[in-house]
Computed example of a mutant assay.
Amino acid sequence: MLHRLALRVLPSLTLAVTEDSVRTRKRVVMFVPGLVAFAVYRAAKHVTSLSEPLTLLLLSGLVSLATAICAYRVGRTVPFSRLIDEDGVPRIVWVLAWIGFVYGVQLSLLVLALLWLVGYDYAKHPDGPAMMAIIIPCTAVARDAFEIGHIRWLERSGRPFATFPDGVALRALLRRIPPAMMQWLGLGVVSCVGLSLAVMPLVNGDWAVLVEGALVTLVAGTVALPAFLSGQAGGRDWVPQFTNTGWGELLKFWWWPGLAFASTYYLVLVAAACMY
């Protein structure tokens, strides 16, 4: 989901994908794959059992994979035959594997977790949740792949961007992992795991997931804020950065992506654990 962060936080990327003409095309790009995904779901019901979690996730991932490359091509406005020549194999593989399959599976798990929270349990009533776990991720993948393709088209047309939402900079950072980054990662992991272990004996049943999720989200989102400021400070003291930033901006980042991403990944892990 880090590409979503880039697409929504960086002004140059946000403005590029929210123009009126782009939004109109994006609605069509999201609507058509949704219909196709529904047709695939109806056909798959007669071929295999979607009550099997692995089958459902595999099908959702494959549908999202096909959707991703098609939506990316629409955003790029070039034929399939030219995609590899112009964008290269690594980027096309990234669109297929990460934006398509992995992101689609992740969103399927998120949908199933949210449905479970409102009492619509996939384990008890698989048909409805299975349908939504295929269609909703498919439309979200179509939106993101189209936006990324559109940005790539603008880039090829000569419009400069500070970065491209393909995770290259993040992967380069992870290869060297600065000590400060390890400290914040360690603090986040230890805090969340310790809090989960402390809550487990106190709350039982479904309430345990809700209480633990709320606390883990709060802690992880809160740790993310100073970690972000520390990264901005470039290894220097992040406290002056904190005091010089307005409360509105701090709360905005604390809410999104801090709390939002923390709760999302928590629900994905809960869904994966419940399914297996």
Rank of each mutant, 00 (worst) to 15 (best):
R175P: 12
D20M: 13
G158M: 11
L110F: 15
A224W: 05
I136H: 01
L229M: 10
I135G: 00
T24N: 12
S64F: 04
G75V: 12
R76G: 10
A16M: 03
W254C: 07
A123P: 10
V93L: 11
G246V: 14
P11Q: 04
F242S: 02
G234N: 09
A97C: 13
V223N: 02
K124E: 09
A262H: 05
V102H: 02
L195G: 03
M132W: 14
L5M: 12
A66W: 11
P79G: 12
G61Q: 00
V239D: 11
P33M: 07
L218K: 00
T163E: 12
W207F: 10
L218T: 09
V9R: 06
R4V: 13
D206Q: 14
G235E: 05
S51F: 00
P137I: 06
D127C: 11
L65T: 12
V193E: 03
V9G: 11
D166A: 07
Y120R: 13
E19C: 09
H3N: 10
L185A: 14
L107C: 12
S108A: 13
V22E: 08
I134D: 03
L202V: 09
I134P: 00
A271P: 07
V216Q: 01
G248R: 00
A271W: 01
R143Y: 09
R8M: 12
R42A: 15
T18C: 07
Y41V: 02
Q106Y: 15
T163Y: 11
G246Y: 01
P201M: 08
V17Y: 00
D206R: 10
L109A: 05
A130Y: 01
A43Y: 14
E147F: 01
I148E: 01
P79S: 08
P33N: 07
N244C: 08
V22I: 15
V168L: 12
P201V: 08
V22C: 03
L57H: 02
I92T: 06
A224V: 13
M181F: 15
L65F: 04
T243W: 08
L7D: 06
P160A: 09
A43N: 12
A113K: 00
T77L: 13
Y103L: 14
P240R: 08
D121V: 11
R73P: 00
L57Y: 07
V118L: 09
W116T: 07
P137H: 04
I99C: 05
L109P: 00
L57E: 07
C70Q: 10
V203N: 03
I177V: 14
L170K: 04
D127W: 13
P226D: 04
I135L: 11
G167F: 04
A39N: 08
V223E: 06
R25D: 13
I84M: 09
A198P: 02
L2I: 14
